[in-house]
């Protein structure tokens, strides 16, 4: 059975979620790795080949775009479509957290 891609379903992996957050403001592609590491206090670290491949896929999906270049290094920013996907995923994750808070904090099943 073929694997369903997050780029088709909009069900973002943690890494893609964080990369999209990092592109809310224009940023050099190579700097996103450092940004994600700083955001997560080093818990999530993205390798260069993974980052380069992921940015190409995000661009193909229309979720980020080139907004310029500095010293031959591309600067990316999230698109409107990307913001929509990010917001949907954020709401989904928030909803999951509220459900978990009710069940873990209220009706305690464990």
């Amino acid at each position: 059975m073929a694997k369903i891609s997050p780029y088709e379903t909009g069900e973002l992996t943690d890494s893609i979620f964080l990369i999209l957050l990092a592109t809310l403001k224009p940023i050099h592609g190579y700097r996103i790795m450092q940004e994600v590491m700083d955001m997560t206090d080093g818990i999530i670290v993205i390798g260069p080949a993974t980052m380069y491949t992921t940015l190409k896929k995000l661009k193909d999906a229309g979720w980020i775009m080139d907004v310029g270049e500095e010293d031959s290094k591309i600067i990316y920013e999230i698109t409107e479509e990307g913001r929509k996907i990010l917001k949907n995923n954020f709401d989904y994750r928030k909803n999951l957290i509220s459900i978990a808070e009710k069940w873990l904090g209220g009706k305690n099943h464990g």
Binding site: H28, G29, Y30, R31, M33, Q34, G47, P48, A49, M51, Y52, E69, D71, S72, K73, I74
Partner: peptide, 15 residues
């Protein structure tokens, strides 16, 4: 990688 350029190499150098 099939295409190498300064942008692509910057990811590796940064890491």
């Amino acid at each position: 990688e099939l295409t190498i350029d300064k942008d692509m190499l910057s990811y590796y150098e940064a890491s």
